[in-house]
Simulated scan of single mutants.
Amino acid sequence: MRKTTPATIALTTAGVTFATATYDYDPGSDRVGLQAAAAMGVAPGVVFKTLMAEVDGKPVCVVVPSDEEVNMKKLAAAVGGKHAAMMKPADAERLTGYKVGGISPLGQKRKVPTVVEETAVLLDEIFINGGQRGLQLRIKPEDAVAALAAMLADVIR
């Protein structure tokens, strides 16, 4: 597995400290974030999944703990919209340049508004996808938010 991806390049270029962690990706898993947490032996609440959504037809990236679900009404409200829905996987891959299961909020082909669940900053560190299936980045949540120019908001159920 290569550990240099657009996500790691983005963090390195920004001077952000991070560490990589790898795990055996299970393509049959229904919940990649939970599978990643189990494979790495860490709590599911510190592994954050990256989801691509559309709010009023415009793309939005949302980053939430792997053991939580996005509340679409809260997501829409967080970005000043009325209606939110999950993006189709093929559209997410085309927009981000990453494969589903390996979508990172960092280093995407096209920069879109990003929302990080506000509880992330209560943790010392989190794991976010590194831009490849089986690759996670261990990072301070405030560093991730800054590198993403993300907004913090309550977007879980």
Rank of each mutant, 00 (worst) to 15 (best):
A19H: 11
T96R: 09
K58W: 09
T13E: 14
T50S: 11
P59R: 07
R138C: 05
T114Y: 14
V62F: 09
D143H: 14
V79C: 12
D30L: 05
T4E: 08
V79Y: 07
T4W: 00
A150R: 03
E142G: 07
S29A: 15
A120Q: 09
V115H: 09
D154S: 14
V42R: 10
T5Q: 00
D56C: 12
L137S: 07
G81N: 11
F127I: 03
R2W: 00
T4D: 04
L135F: 07
V116C: 11
D91H: 13
G107L: 01
G134D: 00
A85Q: 14
V112R: 12
V79H: 07
D30I: 00
Q108F: 02
R157T: 05
V60I: 15
A150Q: 01
K82S: 14
L148C: 06
T13N: 12
R31N: 11
Q136I: 00
K140I: 07
I139W: 01
S29E: 06
I156N: 06
F127E: 09
A37L: 02
I9L: 09
V64D: 01
C61R: 13
M151Q: 15
I9T: 14
I126Q: 05
V155P: 07
I156W: 05
E117T: 08
D26N: 13
M86F: 13
V145M: 08
I128Y: 09
V60A: 08
Q108M: 15
V115T: 06
K58T: 12
Q132T: 00
A36G: 07
A19D: 15
K74D: 08
E117Y: 13
L152M: 12
L148W: 05
K74N: 08
D26V: 03
V70A: 11
V63K: 05
A92H: 06
Y25K: 04
V155Y: 10
I126D: 03
G134T: 02
K109R: 13
V63G: 00
L122M: 13
K3D: 01
N129H: 07
Y23G: 00
L51G: 08
K99F: 09
A84P: 10
G28D: 13
